[in-house]
Amino acid sequence: MQMQNKIIIVINGLSKTFKSTIHALNSVDLTVNKGEVLTIIGPSGSGKSTLLRCMNLMETPTSGTVIFEGQRLNIKDKNINQLREKMGMVFQSFNLFPHLSVLQNITLSPRLVLKMDEDTAHKMALDLLEKVGLSDKVDAFPNQLSGGQKQRVAIARALAMKPDVMLFDEPTSALDPEMVGEVLSVMRNLANAGMTMVIVTHEMAFAKEVSDRVVFMAEGQIVEIDSPEVIFIKPKEERTKIFLKRVNVF
C-alpha cells in the first residue's frame, strides 16, 4: 500500500483518568497517517480501547489534545457531531439499533445528518450490503442475524457516512470463533481499498497481516510502535516480548 504520509490524527500528551484514581492513559502521543492501517495490541486494561475511544471523543480526555484533519477536538467544540461523521466506529458489542431493520440501520444517519434523499440512501445501503455480503438481509431485523452478520451490518452502517477513518474497537471479541473470519475478511477488503483504519484487536495473525504499523500498549502507555515484522518477529522491548510469548502466537 502506498503511504501518502499525510497525517489524519495527531494525539498529544493524552491522559485519561477514571474516577480520579485509575490511570487508563498516561500521556500518550500518536499520529495516524492517511491510508494506513494501524493496529493497537496489548494486554487487557492497557488502555487500548480508551485510546481509540478518545479519538472521536466517546471518552473525554482528562488532558491532552486530539487533532483530526487539522481541527482540535475539544470538549466544548460545537462541531463534534460533524467531525464524528468523518470517523466511523465499530463496537465490540455491535450496537445495531434493534428497533430498525438492517436497511434503516444503515440509512438513518445519512438521511438525518447528511440529508441524503431516500432513493440515494437506499441505493447506497444496497451497495454497502453487497460489499459485506449481506444483500439478502436488507429487511431483516438485528435479532434475526448472527453475531458475524450483525458486525458486518455495523461496518456497513459506519461506512454509509463516508468516513475518512474507521475506528474498530475489538470488532471480533464478542464473536463465536467460526464467525471471526467473515468479519476479518470484510475488514481486509476495506484495508485493501485504502481506508484509514485504527483497530484495537486481539487477533494477532490478522494484525500481523493487514497492519502498516502496530502499536503495543501496556499500563496506559505506548511501549513500542513499529512495522508488524519488527513487533511480531524481533520486538525491541522486553514487555512486548513477554506479551507475545504469553499470547503464544509466533
Binding site: 457531531n81 460533524q82 464524528r84 470517523m87 466511523g88 439499533f97 445528518v113 459506519a158
Partner: peptide, 26 residues
C-alpha cells in the same frame, strides 16, 4: 444500553436526534 447512544453519536447524530430516533423508541 449505553452502546445505543454511543453508536448513534459515532454516526454524527446530535444528542437530541439520538434521544428521539434511537433511545425513546426503545
Amino acid at each position: 444500553d449505553r452502546g445505543q447512544t454511543e453508536a448513534a453519536r459515532s454516526l454524527g447524530m446530535s444528542s437530541s436526534m439520538t434521544m428521539r430516533k434511537i433511545v425513546l423508541p426503545q
